[in-house]
């Protein structure tokens, strides 16, 4: 069977199904934003989208390219500033954070700062922005990234954003909110959650066309596979239609 969607479309459609109706989500630029827009137009019409620069609950007719874009507060309930949005997260009333990242380890810790040494980096990335704040203070973090050995590493070069840190109990010991942390990782190969006992990444569902071996080969650490391993559903025609025609008609995100 030939597939009629690309990997970005697959990831966005898959991820959108994890954003429950009526919840609040703090989103980053690009794919996470497209995902929240799609969820709002499909299964979660009452999903509340929040942007760190101060756009609160907008209606998004066109894709912002930055979280400070004027489009982030189109017909919003508020156009505020960064403090307004971040204090809301700090208060503990934002359900999801939705992020990307350059590197991620088995505990869901994310690096978006440097590859190599901090003082003499091989590659410099933009930095935390609001990512550390969101993953520290929102309840569940979703992460979307391409699955490769360079990205899924044993140890992140710089821990920009906390996942389960060094394992069970370490977030709570650090002083981060009880029962918060990474929730789902959505890649082009699989959807992963976290094992309750070890707080390490566990493959929950395999994307169309991918195999267990391929997923492990593209991961820099030993993955767990769920006892209830399932297959990720293909994007539905109506999801693809809305994504292509309403969410991202000029292919700012899905075209890549």
């Amino acid at each position: 069977m030939t597939q009629n969607y690309n990997m970005m479309e697959l990831m966005i459609c898959t991820a959108s199904r994890y954003l429950e109706d009526g919840k609040t989500v703090a989103v980053g630029t690009g794919a996470p934003c497209a995902t929240a827009m799609l969820a709002q137009k499909t299964i979660s019409p009452n999903l509340v989208i929040l942007f760190e620069a101060g756009g609160i609950a907008p209606e998004l007719p066109s894709m912002p390219i930055s979280v400070g874009d004027s489009r982030t507060f189109h017909k919003a309930v508020m156009a505020a500033g960064m403090s307004e949005m971040m204090t809301t997260c700090s208060r503990g009333i934002v359900d999801y954070a939705f992020l990307g990242g350059a590197q991620i380890d088995k505990f869901g810790n994310i690096n978006s700062t440097v590859v190599g040494d901090y003082y003499k980096p091989k590659v410099r990335f933009p930095g935390s922005g609001g990512a550390n704040d969101f993953a520290s203070m929102c309840w569940n973090t979703l992460i979307m990234t391409v699955h490769s050995k360079n990205r899924f590493v044993e140890k992140v070069d710089f821990l920009t954003t906390p996942g389960y840190l060094t394992g069970p109990g370490s977030r709570e010991a650090a002083g981060l909110p009880d029962n918060s942390g990474p929730y789902k990782i959505i890649t082009d190969l699989a959807v992963m959650g976290f094992d309750d006992k070890t707080k390490t990444m566990v493959v929950e569902s395999i994307n169309p066309g991918a195999t267990k071996e391929q997923i492990q080969e593209n991961t820099g650490f030993e993955l767990l596979f769920s006892d209830n391993l399932s297959s990720t559903s293909e994007p539905k025609p109506e999801e693809l239609k809305i994504l292509r025609e309403e969410v991202d008609p000029t292919k700012l995100v899905i075209g890549r």
């Binding site: 403090s83 700090s90 700062t113 550390n132 821990l159 920009t160 906390p162």
Partner: peptide
Amino acid sequence: SLRFTAGAMGLPFLPVKSGIESDI
């Protein structure tokens, strides 16, 4: 943003929950 807020208030610092145990 809290560091600027502290400066704007004439305070030496402000507390925040984020950043703990990270490389930041």
